[in-house]
């Protein structure tokens, strides 16, 4: 039962939303799918005085194809992303990550913008976006006298997360969209996402996204990104210069990249580290298999 009073506004123009957010940034929370914020309010963990709902703002929704990227509006739901043909074609890694968020009802309602801005280190999207080098489009009200002036900036995903559930968004600034660079064709690039949780719909203990490609030299290159192990997701470049990775090589690279892993009641630090290594390596293995399959089918 939500105890604290608040007012709720649901503007249809972005400028109005940003103005409302800028008016009292500390007391205002933007609302999107509500799958995290509403339970947090019910549990008494969050008590905003103002809620600004972003769902009815056209600029923040929709999925659009750009020449080199797919622009996914912040209010696109996990279900939209998991099933959209353009995302499936150009960013299947992200679609796979979306398909494994929570359960059907959560995917029908929860949004990518909300997930990114909440920055829970275990959220499925974060490693996928990190592996894909996504760019966050952030919007805020511009200072000064112009009532409807807004400012937009693009933040590479690698610079977006500032700490545990913390981002570099300024007060009153929101995630407006994510630009996800198009993956290469399956003949040139393999990708895989892995989620490890106690039960399938739970928040993961760790999740991993891998992206590998064969370079013209025949050598493999790629990266694996891990969520849930550290306060922010971490991207690990895989050792280059070889046609394949030796057994244990990926695990070692992951272990080295993760210093001081988090712990909680579901997983202590050393176990979490090991799971990051195991599932990261499995994601890489699956990505390599996908690449092999792609090459064969070419």
């Amino acid at each position: 039962m939500i105890a604290e009073r608040f007012d709720y506004q649901s503007p249809t123009r972005l400028a109005d939303a940003l103005r409302l957010l800028a008016a009292d940034p500390d007391g205002t929370r933007p609302l999107s799918g509500g799958m995290t914020l509403v339970p947090m309010m019910t549990l008494g963990l969050a008590a905003p005085e103002h809620i600004v709902d972003l769902k009815r703002i056209p600029e923040l929704g929709g999925i659009h194809e750009e020449p080199d990227a797919v622009r996914i509006g912040a209010t696109a739901t996990h279900h939209d992303i998991a099933t959209d043909p353009r995302v499936r074609l150009h960013a299947p890694l992200l679609a796979d990550a979306a398909a494994l968020v929570g359960d059907v009802q959560v995917r029908n309602r929860g949004t990518i913008g909300g997930s990114i801005a909440h920055a829970d280190p275990a959220a499925n999207y974060l490693p996928a976006l990190l592996a894909l080098d996504a760019v966050i489009e952030a919007r805020a009200k511009r200072g000064g006298l112009l009532r409807n002036a807004t400012r937009s900036r693009r933040i590479p995903i690698g610079e977006f997360f500032a700490g545990l559930m913390a981002t570099c968004l300024a007060a009153g600034e929101i995630v407006a969209a994510v630009h996800v660079p198009k993956q290469l064709a399956a003949t040139h690039q393999g990708a895989a996402f892995r989620k490890f949780a106690r039960v399938k719909g739970n928040f993961p203990i760790v999740c991993a996204a891998a992206l590998v490609e064969r370079q013209s030299s025949g050598e493999r290159a790629g990266c694996v990104a891990i969520g849930g192990a550290l306060p922010i997701p971490v991207r690990i470049a895989l050792p280059g210069g070889q046609a394949a990775w030796a057994a244990g090589e990926v695990e070692t690279a992951i272990r080295q990249a993760i210093d001081d892993p988090m712990s909680d009641a579901n997983a202590s630090a050393d176990y979490r580290l090991e799971m990051a290594a195991v599932h990261g390596a499995r994601a890489v293995e699956a990505a390599c298999r996908a690449l092999d399959d792609g090459e064969r089918s070419a």
Binding site: R29, L31, L37, G110, I116, A117, A119, T167, L169, A170
Partner: peptide, 12 residues
């Protein structure tokens, strides 16, 4: 503060 201020997280 202007540049490092952390925003209240947004819900998903």
């Amino acid at each position: 503060g202007l540049f490092t201020r952390r925003s209240p997280g947004r819900s998903s």
